[in-house]
């Protein structure tokens, strides 16, 4: 991985660290005080997890400043993955709650779709976009990507794709 690209990643990591930490801590504070605003409801556990994802990004930045700066990419990469994974989790909640509302289950009469529009869901748009970009870039860089290789890659995990990118 070249120096420029790493710096780009770290910058992105710093941005993400800020956003996830801010939203996460806000949610924790709102959760404790029992308030909350539209799109940022109070949620102690959810907020703590956002802050944790933020810390992973932040750890990347910290590593970059340290003696082994080239490892920073790992933290940013994994942080982005975590953001996307927890977004999926939240999305499952949304789907389940919508189904419960549809079935008219008790406790769900008051449910509105905005209740489940939480930072964990929408913040992930950033890492998702970044990951897609990294991916297309590494695809382009790949040599001799004949059809066979393409197929293997798609059927296979993303590990393979990123490895190639990493090795550049």
């Amino acid at each position: 991985m070249d120096e420029k690209r790493l710096r780009c990643m770290v910058l992105f990591g710093l941005l993400m660290a800020e956003m996830y930490l801010t939203f996460g801590l806000l949610q924790v504070v709102f959760g404790i005080t029992g308030r909350g605003i539209l799109l940022i409801p109070g949620d102690i556990v959810g907020g703590a997890i956002l802050a944790l994802i933020g810390s992973v990004f932040l750890a990347g930045v910290a590593v970059w400043l340290g003696p082994r700066g080239e490892d920073a990419g790992a933290y940013v990469h994994v942080g982005a993955w975590l953001g996307v994974i927890f977004c999926l989790v939240r999305f499952v909640f949304l789907a389940a709650n919508a189904l419960a509302f549809g079935l008219g289950m008790e406790d769900f009469g008051e449910w509105r779709i905005t209740d489940d529009m939480v930072p964990m869901l929408y913040l992930a748009l950033f890492p998702l976009a970044a990951m897609l970009r990294w991916r297309t870039k590494s695809r382009k860089e790949m040599r001799g990507n004949d059809k066979e290789d393409e197929k293997v890659n798609r059927g296979q995990d993303d590990t393979g794709v990123s490895t190639r990118e990493e090795s550049k």
Partner: peptide
């Protein structure tokens, strides 16, 4: 070479981040 798996391990088995994650 550094694989994605190595990178994930660096984070998931990190002594500070491992348990919260």
């Amino acid at each position: 070479k550094l694989t994605m798996s190595d990178m994930m391990d660096r984070v998931f088995t990190n002594k500070w981040l491992g348990i919260p994650l």
